[in-house]
Amino acid sequence: MKEISEMKLPDNVKYTDDHEWAKDEGGNVKIGITDYAQDQLGDIVFVEMPEVGATYEKGDEFGTVESVKAVSELFMPICGEIVAINEGLEDAPEQVNSDPYDGGWMISVKPSDTGELDALMDKAAYLDMLKG
């Protein structure tokens, strides 16, 4: 397990208390799980994804992420429509471990309310939460 000081926590993404991250990519929002979450879960073996085109409310479960001995639900940080999923994770779910913010992204969402993203935690607030 990593110490909190070893966690990769980029400045340009927002964080949720369920340990998802969300990043504005010029209109659509990319979503994945944080370095802390992947470290807690251990070796990721499978990511269950939603259908493209589905719409979710903020806080809805959009999928699950599985390690060998644990399964964890994934929750929407914002509301919106799924416009893309990371199909690469089907063959290589380990990217969530090795590269949680880039190769390990999970879904791309067209937000219904752009204000919701701003309301999420920034790096400092998330770090405070992790430190408890």
Binding site: V45, F46, S67, K69, A70, V71
Partner: peptide
């Protein structure tokens, strides 16, 4: 694939 099973899920 034991994450399908009762002791985990």
């Amino acid at each position: 694939l034991s994450t399908r099973e009762q002791h985990i899920r």
